[in-house]
Simulated scan of single mutants.
Amino acid sequence: MSKAKILIIEDDKEISRLTAMYLEAEGYSTHIIADGAKAKTTVHHEQPDFIILDLMLPGLDGVSVCKQLRQFYQHPILVLTACSDDISEVSLLKLGADDYLTKPVRPHVLLARIENLLRRYQFTAQDSKQLQVGQLKIDTNKQQVSCNGLIPALTTAEYEMLLLLATHAGKIVSREDCCRALRGINYDFNDRSVDMRISGLRKKLNDDALPYQTILTIRNKGYMLSNG
Protein backbone atom coordinates (compact mmCIF):
# COMPACT_ATOMS: atom_id res chain seq x y z
CA MET A 1 0.00 0.00 0.00
CA SER A 2 1.39 3.41 -0.96
CA LYS A 3 2.49 5.64 1.91
CA ALA A 4 1.77 8.95 0.19
CA LYS A 5 1.48 10.55 -3.23
CA ILE A 6 4.49 12.69 -4.14
CA LEU A 7 4.53 15.18 -7.02
CA ILE A 8 8.00 15.73 -8.48
CA ILE A 9 8.36 19.01 -10.38
CA GLU A 10 11.72 18.66 -12.10
CA ASP A 11 12.81 19.24 -15.70
CA ASP A 12 15.93 17.05 -15.56
CA LYS A 13 14.56 13.73 -16.82
CA GLU A 14 17.31 11.61 -15.29
CA ILE A 15 17.02 13.22 -11.85
CA SER A 16 13.23 12.92 -11.82
CA ARG A 17 13.37 9.32 -13.07
CA LEU A 18 15.88 8.23 -10.43
CA THR A 19 14.05 10.12 -7.68
CA ALA A 20 10.73 8.53 -8.61
CA MET A 21 12.30 5.07 -8.83
CA TYR A 22 13.89 5.43 -5.38
CA LEU A 23 10.71 6.73 -3.74
CA GLU A 24 8.52 4.09 -5.33
CA ALA A 25 10.90 1.42 -4.01
CA GLU A 26 10.20 2.90 -0.55
CA GLY A 27 6.43 2.57 -1.00
CA TYR A 28 5.50 6.05 -2.25
CA SER A 29 3.53 6.75 -5.43
CA THR A 30 4.92 9.47 -7.67
CA HIS A 31 3.88 11.75 -10.49
CA ILE A 32 6.35 13.80 -12.53
CA ILE A 33 5.94 17.06 -14.42
CA ALA A 34 8.74 19.05 -16.05
CA ASP A 35 7.03 22.40 -16.72
CA GLY A 36 6.41 24.91 -13.93
CA ALA A 37 3.45 26.38 -15.80
CA LYS A 38 1.58 23.07 -15.35
CA ALA A 39 2.13 22.92 -11.59
CA LYS A 40 -1.08 24.58 -10.37
CA THR A 41 -3.37 22.52 -12.62
CA THR A 42 -1.53 19.31 -11.78
CA VAL A 43 -1.73 19.90 -8.02
CA HIS A 44 -5.48 20.52 -8.26
CA HIS A 45 -5.92 17.34 -10.32
CA GLU A 46 -3.51 14.99 -8.53
CA GLN A 47 -3.99 16.23 -4.94
CA PRO A 48 -0.47 15.18 -3.86
CA ASP A 49 0.48 14.71 -0.21
CA PHE A 50 3.95 16.12 -0.81
CA ILE A 51 5.76 18.18 -3.46
CA ILE A 52 9.42 18.08 -4.48
CA LEU A 53 10.05 21.30 -6.38
CA ASP A 54 13.13 22.23 -8.40
CA LEU A 55 13.85 25.96 -8.63
CA MET A 56 15.11 25.99 -12.22
CA LEU A 57 12.12 25.14 -14.39
CA PRO A 58 10.85 26.03 -17.86
CA GLY A 59 7.49 27.76 -18.21
CA LEU A 60 7.43 29.13 -14.66
CA ASP A 61 10.39 29.12 -12.26
CA GLY A 62 10.25 27.31 -8.94
CA VAL A 63 10.03 30.49 -6.86
CA SER A 64 6.93 31.61 -8.76
CA VAL A 65 5.46 28.10 -8.60
CA CYS A 66 5.90 27.95 -4.81
CA LYS A 67 4.28 31.35 -4.32
CA GLN A 68 1.39 30.33 -6.55
CA LEU A 69 0.83 27.01 -4.81
CA ARG A 70 0.95 28.52 -1.34
CA GLN A 71 -2.24 30.42 -2.11
CA PHE A 72 -4.15 27.15 -1.66
CA TYR A 73 -1.79 24.21 -0.98
CA GLN A 74 -1.02 23.48 2.68
CA HIS A 75 0.90 20.20 2.43
CA PRO A 76 4.72 20.13 2.64
CA ILE A 77 6.88 21.53 -0.16
CA LEU A 78 10.55 20.51 -0.32
CA VAL A 79 12.64 22.66 -2.66
CA LEU A 80 15.73 21.49 -4.57
CA THR A 81 18.30 24.18 -5.29
CA ALA A 82 21.83 24.45 -6.65
CA CYS A 83 22.64 27.28 -4.20
CA SER A 84 23.47 26.77 -0.54
CA ASP A 85 24.29 30.30 0.64
CA ASP A 86 22.37 32.16 3.33
CA ILE A 87 20.61 34.45 0.87
CA SER A 88 19.09 31.45 -0.89
CA GLU A 89 17.90 29.98 2.41
CA VAL A 90 16.25 33.22 3.48
CA SER A 91 14.53 33.53 0.10
CA LEU A 92 13.25 29.97 0.26
CA LEU A 93 11.79 30.41 3.72
CA LYS A 94 10.12 33.64 2.66
CA LEU A 95 8.45 32.11 -0.38
CA GLY A 96 6.87 29.33 1.66
CA ALA A 97 9.09 26.26 1.35
CA ASP A 98 8.96 23.91 4.34
CA ASP A 99 12.52 22.72 3.78
CA TYR A 100 15.16 22.59 1.07
CA LEU A 101 18.04 20.46 -0.16
CA THR A 102 21.00 21.43 -2.29
CA LYS A 103 21.98 19.39 -5.32
CA PRO A 104 23.33 16.81 -5.75
CA VAL A 105 20.77 15.22 -3.45
CA ARG A 106 21.68 12.07 -1.54
CA PRO A 107 18.71 9.66 -1.69
CA HIS A 108 18.77 8.67 1.98
CA VAL A 109 18.82 12.33 3.04
CA LEU A 110 15.91 13.12 0.71
CA LEU A 111 13.93 10.22 2.16
CA ALA A 112 14.65 11.32 5.73
CA ARG A 113 13.47 14.87 5.02
CA ILE A 114 10.30 13.64 3.32
CA GLU A 115 9.45 11.30 6.19
CA ASN A 116 10.11 14.01 8.78
CA LEU A 117 7.90 16.57 7.02
CA LEU A 118 5.10 14.05 6.50
CA ARG A 119 5.23 12.96 10.15
CA ARG A 120 4.92 16.58 11.25
CA TYR A 121 2.02 17.23 8.90
CA GLN A 122 0.15 14.04 9.83
CA PHE A 123 0.65 14.63 13.55
CA THR A 124 -0.85 18.10 13.42
CA ALA A 125 -3.67 16.90 11.16
CA GLN A 126 -4.70 14.27 13.72
CA ASP A 127 -4.60 16.60 16.71
CA SER A 128 -8.19 17.58 17.56
CA LYS A 129 -7.61 20.31 20.14
CA GLN A 130 -8.97 23.82 19.72
CA LEU A 131 -6.59 26.51 20.93
CA GLN A 132 -7.29 30.16 21.62
CA VAL A 133 -4.76 32.68 22.84
CA GLY A 134 -6.13 36.21 22.98
CA GLN A 135 -7.45 37.04 19.49
CA LEU A 136 -5.55 34.12 17.99
CA LYS A 137 -7.56 30.95 17.30
CA ILE A 138 -6.15 27.66 16.00
CA ASP A 139 -8.46 24.98 14.62
CA THR A 140 -6.21 21.93 14.54
CA ASN A 141 -8.79 19.80 12.73
CA LYS A 142 -8.62 22.11 9.71
CA GLN A 143 -5.11 23.35 10.50
CA GLN A 144 -6.57 26.83 10.17
CA VAL A 145 -5.54 29.95 12.03
CA SER A 146 -7.54 33.13 12.52
CA CYS A 147 -6.33 36.31 14.16
CA ASN A 148 -8.39 39.49 14.50
CA GLY A 149 -10.62 38.36 11.66
CA LEU A 150 -7.74 37.42 9.37
CA ILE A 151 -7.31 33.85 8.09
CA PRO A 152 -3.68 33.71 6.91
CA ALA A 153 -2.46 30.96 4.58
CA LEU A 154 0.40 29.42 6.54
CA THR A 155 2.97 26.90 5.39
CA THR A 156 3.26 23.65 7.34
CA ALA A 157 6.40 24.94 9.06
CA GLU A 158 4.79 28.28 9.96
CA TYR A 159 1.70 26.53 11.29
CA GLU A 160 3.74 24.20 13.46
CA MET A 161 5.88 27.06 14.73
CA LEU A 162 2.76 28.96 15.74
CA LEU A 163 1.20 25.85 17.27
CA LEU A 164 4.36 25.29 19.34
CA LEU A 165 4.28 28.88 20.60
CA ALA A 166 0.52 28.69 21.27
CA THR A 167 0.86 25.55 23.40
CA HIS A 168 3.46 27.44 25.47
CA ALA A 169 1.69 30.82 25.42
CA GLY A 170 3.14 33.26 27.92
CA LYS A 171 6.35 31.22 28.19
CA ILE A 172 9.66 31.61 26.39
CA VAL A 173 10.38 29.02 23.68
CA SER A 174 14.07 28.88 22.77
CA ARG A 175 15.30 28.89 19.19
CA GLU A 176 16.77 25.44 19.86
CA ASP A 177 13.35 24.08 20.89
CA CYS A 178 11.74 25.72 17.85
CA CYS A 179 14.22 24.05 15.53
CA ARG A 180 13.96 20.65 17.19
CA ALA A 181 10.19 20.77 16.82
CA LEU A 182 10.46 21.70 13.15
CA ARG A 183 13.36 19.64 11.89
CA GLY A 184 14.16 16.96 14.45
CA ILE A 185 16.48 16.75 17.42
CA ASN A 186 19.59 15.83 15.45
CA TYR A 187 19.24 18.46 12.75
CA ASP A 188 22.13 20.91 12.35
CA PHE A 189 20.14 24.11 12.72
CA ASN A 190 20.88 27.80 12.66
CA ASP A 191 19.07 30.76 14.18
CA ARG A 192 18.29 32.38 10.84
CA SER A 193 16.02 29.55 9.72
CA VAL A 194 13.87 29.97 12.82
CA ASP A 195 13.99 33.77 12.71
CA MET A 196 12.80 33.83 9.11
CA ARG A 197 9.80 31.66 9.90
CA ILE A 198 8.94 33.93 12.82
CA SER A 199 9.25 36.92 10.48
CA GLY A 200 6.90 35.25 8.00
CA LEU A 201 4.37 34.54 10.75
CA ARG A 202 4.45 38.14 11.96
CA LYS A 203 3.80 39.43 8.48
CA LYS A 204 0.86 37.08 7.92
CA LEU A 205 -0.59 37.93 11.34
CA ASN A 206 -0.29 41.65 10.52
CA ASP A 207 2.14 42.15 13.40
CA ASP A 208 5.39 42.94 11.59
CA ALA A 209 5.94 46.47 12.92
CA LEU A 210 7.70 47.29 16.17
CA PRO A 211 6.73 46.96 18.95
CA TYR A 212 5.45 43.43 18.26
CA GLN A 213 2.18 42.59 19.98
CA THR A 214 1.65 38.89 19.22
CA ILE A 215 4.99 37.09 18.89
CA LEU A 216 7.55 38.70 21.17
CA THR A 217 11.32 38.42 20.82
CA ILE A 218 13.00 37.70 24.16
CA ARG A 219 16.59 38.84 23.68
CA ASN A 220 19.17 36.03 23.77
CA LYS A 221 16.49 33.56 24.87
CA GLY A 222 13.92 32.95 22.12
CA TYR A 223 10.31 33.82 21.38
CA MET A 224 7.06 34.04 23.30
CA LEU A 225 3.43 34.20 22.16
CA SER A 226 1.68 36.91 24.12
CA ASN A 227 -1.40 35.65 25.92
CA GLY A 228 -2.63 39.13 26.66
Rank of each mutant, 00 (worst) to 15 (best):
G96F: 08
L165I: 00
Q213C: 06
P107C: 08
M56C: 14
N116A: 12
K13F: 09
P211N: 02
T30Q: 08
I151T: 07
R219F: 15
V63H: 13
A112D: 08
L216G: 01
A82Y: 08
I8L: 04
A125M: 10
H44R: 13
P48M: 05
T41W: 03
D191M: 13
L182W: 04
S199H: 15
N141V: 15
Q213V: 03
R113L: 05
T217G: 09
T81E: 03
L182R: 01
F50K: 03
T156P: 06
I32W: 00
D195F: 13
G149T: 08
M1V: 06
L136F: 11
R192K: 10
I138H: 02
G96C: 05
T217E: 11
T81P: 00
L154W: 03
Q143W: 04
S16C: 03
G62H: 06
Y159T: 01
D49C: 06
Q122V: 04
M1L: 14
K103N: 06
D127E: 11
R183Y: 15
L92D: 09
Q74L: 06
Y73K: 00
I218F: 07
L57G: 08
L201S: 04
L101A: 05
N227L: 02
D54H: 03
D12I: 06
I8T: 02
C179D: 11
V194F: 15
A125H: 12
L216K: 05
Y159E: 02
D208Q: 12
R202S: 01
L164P: 00
Q74N: 11
L92A: 10
I138Q: 04
K204N: 09
I215A: 01
F189L: 08
L53K: 06
D188P: 07
L60Y: 02
H31I: 09
T102Q: 05
S64M: 05
T124S: 15
Q71T: 07
D98S: 04
P58H: 14
V65G: 00
A82I: 11
M224R: 15
I51D: 01
T19G: 01
I138L: 15
L92M: 09
R180Y: 06
D61T: 11
Q122H: 09
D11P: 00
A153T: 07
Q47C: 10
M196V: 05
Y22C: 06
A4W: 01
S88H: 13
I114N: 11
T102I: 14
E158N: 06
K171H: 14
Q126N: 10
T41M: 05
K204W: 02
S174G: 11
L53N: 10
M56R: 15
L93T: 07
S2C: 04
G134I: 13
D61K: 05
K203M: 09
E89K: 11
Q74R: 14
V145Y: 03
L163T: 03
D99M: 08
K38N: 02
V65K: 07
A125F: 09
V173L: 12
L92H: 10
P152C: 12
P152V: 10
F72V: 00
S128D: 15
L60I: 03
K3R: 08
V133W: 09
L78K: 12
A157K: 15
S84P: 05
Q47H: 12
H31A: 12
